[in-house]
Design a protein around this nucleic acid. Structure first.
Lengths: 173, 173
DNA sequence: GTCTATACCAGGATAGAC
DNA sequence: GTCTATCCTGGTATAGAC
């Protein structure tokens, strides 16, 4: 992966996140990346290929986060870690996550394999803790994660006090 | 507002919601609406104008929902009603709300006036109930609303049992 | 109010030189 | 690996007839 290749990737991520996939021209990407337009196609075949590269890049990143949750054996701690997930987003990755959510809404793009394992591990945790309806509780966690992500990524809410509140309300602290 | 005008509006809403604003051609809208392409521009000036018309149409709709919450004087009941809001979405309006969320992520499009009043009325409710940090509590409600909306609109989750769980967990029931 | 025909430009993509 | 030049489709928008 050359310097310019990475430039293209980063420029595309930024523009896709702010203007959307269809709203971003390859010309705009080239300019932002300080690169000729043709080079984009040499490296990524076409615009769709560029998007795929970005998604792959981010998938690897996110499975690391998920793994950190799944590997915790204590069920209570695992759940807490899951809730804390959106709060531990590296601000440098904000662009990427914005894009992921935008894609979900725009094109129904889905988080695949690693996300399923994550969900399963939460159901298992609630099960171990003797909750009546582990699936429903897990859905609740997803609700919170999506809601918090919206708040942080879209409204730049101060995250720290929110995490406290949620853990308290969730009787996890 | 003529029949064809309404056809255009509905077709555009449907396509914008599924393919995104930039991903939808005026040609596709015309076909879906059973109308000539030129007519779109006669009625709405341009594609952007069509989007604005849709947003206005939905703003009026949403301020009705918000008003239902704001007008409740009992603070506890007001909060419950607010939480129940995303659960009472008319399935016929799913397309519209999907579009609203997609726009939020794509273009940072905002919920304006009526939404601010909604937020204020929740802060007031928590204040009346003697909560320590009404702003933070209100943000929590927003988190839940956004999370639930994501769940319902994007993942077609069964809503009813989820509402129960939330109200219980929130010590509101 | 509505359709047909058409102008015009922007966007994605390719070829070939360096 | 990278740039320049260029092709061509398809998308927005307008004009004018009915």
């Amino acid at each position: 992966m050359t310097d310019k290749q990475l430039n293209i990737l980063m420029a595309a991520m930024k523009l896709f996140a702010s203007k959307g996939f269809d709203g971003t021209s390859t010309n705009a990407i080239a300019t932002e990346a300080g690169v000729s337009e043709g080079l984009i196609f040499k490296h990524f075949k076409n615009k769709e290929g560029l998007l795929e590269a970005i998604i792959n890049y981010g998938m690897e990143k996110s499975s690391v986060y998920f793994a950190e949750v799944i590997l915790i054996s204590d069920p209570q701690k695992r759940i807490e870690k899951a809730i804390a997930l959106p709060f531990s987003i590296d601000p440098n990755d904000n662009q990427f996550w914005k894009l992921m959510y935008a894609l979900k809404w725009q094109r129904g793009e889905y988080q695949s394999g690693p996300f399923e394992l994550f969900r399963e591990s939460l159901i298992d945790a609630f099960d171990q803790l003797g909750y009546e309806n582990p699936e429903l509780e897990t859905t609740m966690i997803e609700v919170i994660i999506d809601g918090v992500a919206t708040q942080i990524l879209l409204k730049n809410t101060d995250a720290a006090p929110l995490l406290e509140t949620i853990l308290k309300k969730y009787s996890l602290k």
